[in-house]
Nucleic acid binder design. Sequence first.
DNA 1: TGTATCGGACCGTCAATGCC
DNA 2: GCATTGACGGTCCGATACAC
Length: 268
Amino acid sequence: MPNSPSPEPDETTSNETQTVDLQPSMTVHPLTYSSMPMHMYPFPSGIVPTPPTRNKRRQVKNACTNCQKACKKCDDARPCLRCVKYGIAEECVDSHRKERKKGIKRGPYKKRDGKPFSLDPPYDGSTHQSIQMTTAISGAPSAIPFISPVGFPPGFLGQYAPAPPKPGDPAIYYPQFYLATPIPAHGLPPHQNGDGEPTYHHPHFYPTTFLTPYPQPYAPYMMPHRPDGQVTLPSAHLGFPPTSTRLPPGTGQQDQREDRSEEVAASQ
DNA sequence: TGTATCGGACCGTCAATGCC
DNA sequence: GCATTGACGGTCCGATACAC
Ligand SMILES: [Zn+2]
Ligand SMILES: [Zn+2]
């Protein structure tokens, strides 16, 4: 199975170099990179009858070892949501990434400019999405509302985030996420050890943070927020149900199910 | 019924390749 | 130098096995 956690302590991961240091000062999570959808295919179900377009699944850059082993969804924060949930936050560390092989010869590339498009170009999210977005916005009442009236971002369906904005389409422009005031959940202040690093002795306390990715009409949605300022990225659940009564961690929820429920809750 | 495991589809990155 | 291709290494969905 390819998912076995890489045991070799390869520190020289070239690409992300996500060293295990916990980014002590994190005010705004680099959502732009790992949390913002790179290419999301809006899925206006019902209005686009033909190609079963689907939103792309967003992945974290580097799952923690626990999630990796379990083949489960991780998030960019450390400890990740799943580890917190299971009360193993202290074991939540980034897995090591192998360095990409170099010097691999490739065959000749197929013609680049010969014919850019056939009549029916292969589906390409970046080209199609504008169309679908437009359709979703302007036209289709039956579609999954791209602009959700209930306070969640449109297309906010689990990890399938809405498509990236098209220039000139301000209504669906997703700017940089920015943090709003952290909510002192349960009035518990973040624990900090000597290094200023947060410790999580009680997995069930992490405050949430409202993010307001939508400067305008959209209501903010919630993101789990860690005492150290890290946030659980909207990745999977681009937020939580605003009134999410999170079940106490360690109760051993089936994370899959729970994740789903969050998403479901979020999507309605 | 709840939880763990894991096969494999899907995704994101980035070196190789091609064009200017 | 920049754009594009496409393979690699990764994430995590969802089916299924297992435990209680
Ligand atoms: Zn994780
Ligand atoms: Zn973790």
